[in-house]
Amino acid sequence: MKAIQYRKFGGPEVLEYVGLPDPEPRAGEVLIETTAIGVNFPDVRERMGVYNRAETQVGGVTLPQVGGLQVVGRVLNAGTEAHDHLVGRKVMALMSKGAYAQRAVARADMLVELEDDTDDVVMASVPCQGVTAFLALQVCTVLRPGESVLVHGAAGGVGNLAVQIAKVLGAATVIGTASSDTRRAFVLSRGADHAIAYDSPHWPESVLSITNGKGVDVILETVGGDVFDENFACLGMLGRCVVIGSTRGPGKPLAPRQLMAKAQTLTGVYLPSFFQRPDLIQRGLRFLKDGIGQGLIRPRVAATLPLSRAADAHAMLERREAQGVIVLDPRY
């Protein structure tokens, strides 16, 4: 089979289009002939060696590595008879590695079956980012109908899906932040009620104005730095702040007593930690499948490139040229 492998850490140029033996599924796993492969920014960070640095506190990568976290394709065979019923079925799968290949192994408890007429490219664009957004809104906290949500970085992959998921869950008011007029227009097109700039000096005041001074019930935090501290000026009574990322760095430590005055909660989500709870992964995948099938969730595919051009896909992500997810076609 053809696959994208890297034998050392570095820039996109370390990604090699090579021939490798087909992987063998073990007990509890299936082998998938891929038809579409989603590209995520964690793939880039993994390739750069970021996760092998002690300060990241993330499990490292063993070289050589075939990266990638999500695929759509058909099951060729199963590692145990218990999963033989999946053979021949189209599936959407989330995995820890190995997606950048014409054939990939996935855990049978971290995939969902798809209808034959499902759009493979669209479905391959959502597992990592969509499940992260779902876990943030339905597991790390539980967004209730009628509540308000502030989504930072709402034009990004996780953010724009979080906006849509919040609306599906019945949020009364969804506010998205983004860095430019174009990106804020995109946030509104995804269903947000308001779009504001998080680099404005008075953005928390805008949130308070929108919520009639109450503040929001839930904040999905992706920016970090000074923005993290400013969140608490517009997080309401019994509000919950869910940390998904920190593009500006972690910022200053938070004094825990700061949460007491309004009985607020601070929590976080890190997708790989949920691989030990595959029931929650599957729940998220089913939610995405159903939402897309009903037209309630509209993923944004920025480009479809041949698998052999995975390096170009990584370069596009690093230059922030992609408004949406890049999907790889394993046929080429």
Rank of each mutant, 00 (worst) to 15 (best):
K8L: 11
P12M: 06
P12F: 02
E13K: 03
E16R: 09
E16V: 13
E16S: 14
Y17L: 10
G19E: 15
P21F: 06
P21E: 12
P23L: 08
E24G: 11
E24R: 15
E29C: 09
L31R: 07
I32T: 03
T34R: 00
A36L: 05
G38K: 00
F41V: 11
P42E: 02
R45Y: 02
V50H: 05
T56M: 07
V58G: 00
V66N: 01
G67F: 06
G67W: 00
L69V: 05
L69G: 02
V71Q: 00
V71G: 01
V72N: 03
V72S: 02
G73K: 05
V75N: 09
V75S: 08
V75R: 04
L76W: 01
A78D: 13
G88Q: 03
G88W: 05
K90F: 08
M92T: 07
M92S: 06
A93I: 12
L94S: 13
M95A: 09
Y100D: 14
Q102S: 13
A104Q: 06
V105Y: 12
V105S: 12
M110G: 07
M110K: 07
L111P: 14
E113R: 04
L114R: 00
L114C: 00
D116Y: 02
T118K: 05
D119N: 14
D120H: 04
V122E: 08
M123D: 08
V126W: 01
V126T: 07
V131I: 12
F134S: 01
F134N: 00
C140D: 08
T141R: 04
R144P: 14
L150G: 10
A155Q: 01
A155T: 03
N160Q: 07
N160H: 12
V168Y: 00
L169E: 05
A171F: 03
A172S: 14
I175N: 05
G176W: 00
G176F: 02
A178M: 10
L188M: 13
R190P: 10
G191F: 06
S200G: 05
S200L: 07
H202L: 11
W203S: 10
W203E: 11
W203G: 07
P204C: 09
S206Q: 10
S206N: 06
I210V: 15
I210W: 04
N212V: 14
G215A: 13
V216F: 04
D217K: 07
V218P: 09
V218W: 04
E221D: 15
G224A: 09
G224Y: 04
G225C: 11
E230W: 03
F232E: 09
C234T: 10
G236E: 11
L238Y: 13
G239I: 15
C241L: 15
I244K: 03
G245C: 05
T247I: 15
R248C: 11
P250Q: 03
G251Y: 01
K252W: 06
L254G: 08
L254I: 14
L254K: 06
L259Q: 13
A261P: 09
A261F: 15
K262S: 10
K262P: 06
A263H: 11
A263K: 08
R277M: 11
D279G: 02
G284W: 05
G291C: 06
I292V: 14
I292A: 12
Q294E: 13
L296Y: 04
A302K: 09
T304E: 13
P306D: 02
P306F: 02
A310R: 02
D312Q: 10
D312R: 01
M316L: 15
R320S: 12
E321N: 03
V327H: 02
D329I: 07
R331E: 11
Y332Q: 07
Y332I: 09
